[in-house]
């Protein structure tokens, strides 16, 4: 199972092109309030993560996610189950 530290830079790289211009992406960055993610961008991010890790990300995790860290933690748990 990949570690949190393995996953974080990959997730960050996938988020950056979707973020509003000029915004920095750190672990505690809030996807909605800092990066202005809307539902379309969230779905876009999920699709990219799914392709990158060959995993299906259930929509049920979305209420648990506010920050880049939250997303990475959830993803690590999903990868651990597979």
């Amino acid at each position: 199972m990949p570690s949190y530290e393995d996953i974080l830079p990959i997730v960050t790289d996938l988020i950056k092109p979707l973020a509003a211009p000029g915004r920095s992406v750190r672990e505690d960055t809030d996807l909605v309030s800092d990066l202005e993610f809307d539902s379309l961008k969230v779905m876009n991010l999920i699709e990219q993560v799914e392709d990158r890790f060959d995993v299906s990300v259930p929509l049920n995790i979305l209420p648990e996610i506010r920050t880049v860290r939250d997303f990475t933690v959830q993803l690590q748990a999903i990868l651990g189950e597979n």
Partner: peptide, 8 residues
């Protein structure tokens, strides 16, 4: 309460 997975 089931798991929801979306396909393209």
């Amino acid at each position: 309460g089931a798991e929801i997975i979306r396909f393209r």
